[in-house]
């Protein structure tokens, strides 16, 4: 029989938690808030944004709180200097690459961590696209605002809809969310379920009405 509770330490606070829960869940039990971006409670945690990284004593690298599960006697720091440097730098690099004007939560986080995206210079490469893709009556895709959190791809695929209309172009910094040969949405397998719009955290996907009239 596995124990039904284990001892862990989060930011110096010892507490008993159920085994197998994520660090993120354990932190919430401890009343500690860890910032997240790609994480969504209904979706597979892919831990791509790495904003939720924490320091786990004994681990060579930082650990993503959304995907890492607690083990007995884990000693975790959620807000150490090392953690804050990583989070701040990720936010700065993101803000220097992507239009975050529709992502107030991320802007607030950037300010909270004292981030300055201008450190990379005005000539730092940004991911920009030729205008907004408005190829269907239901929603628009404004990829200047896309942070590549993967949520839309996940809901379109195995996590929810099994539609497989969305995937990726390119790789590395030049990764983009794409359709088959960049086809307009009506020519893809998209069923216009709206799930992708619902989970987009940065306003890259918007209902057409919202896009046209704001709100």
């Amino acid at each position: 029989m596995p124990p039904n509770e284990i001892w862990i330490t989060i930011d110096g606070q010892a507490l008993k938690v159920p085994p197998g829960i994520t660090i993120l869940e354990a932190a919430r039990l401890a009343g500690v808030e860890i910032p997240t971006l790609c994480y969504h409670p209904s979706l597979t945690a892919n831990a791509v944004c790495r904003l939720c990284v924490v320091e786990w004593r004994g681990s060579r690298t930082l650990v993503a709180a959304c995907a890492g599960t607690v083990r007995p006697n884990a000693v975790i720091l959620t807000n150490s200097r090392r953690v804050r440097t990583a989070r701040r730098t990720i936010l700065e690099m993101l803000a220097a690459s992507v239009d975050l004007s529709d992502a107030p939560d991320l802007q607030a986080l950037l300010a909270e961590y004292g981030g300055d995206p201008n450190r990379f210079g005005e000539d730092a490469a940004r991911r920009t696209f030729d205008g907004v893709k408005a190829d269907n009556p239901f929603y628009v895709r404004d990829y200047d605002k896309c942070v590549l959190c993967w949520r839309c791809v996940q809901v379109c695929a195995d996590d929810v809809q099994h539609t497989y209309a969305l995937g990726f172009n390119g790789r590395g910094f030049h990764t983009e969310i794409a359709t088959f040969f960049d086809a307009p949405m009506p020519d893809t397998t998209c069923v216009f379920c709206g799930n992708c719009v619902g989970v987009c955290p940065t306003g890259a996907l918007k209902g057409k009405r919202e896009y046209l009239w704001g709100g």
């Binding site: 695929a157 209309a165 995937g167 990726f168 172009n169 390119g170 794409a178 359709t179 088959f180 397998t189």
Partner: peptide, 30 residues
């Protein structure tokens, strides 16, 4: 695109998967 569509049908793999795989690997060209 036509060849990829046929590959997708033959293998029973989503169209977008064929596309994104070609996009990922530098030895494949679309």
């Amino acid at each position: 695109a036509d060849t990829c569509t046929e590959i997708s049908r033959a293998l029973n793999v989503p169209l977008v998967q064929v596309h994104e795989v070609i996009e990922f690997y530098t030895l494949f060209y679309n």
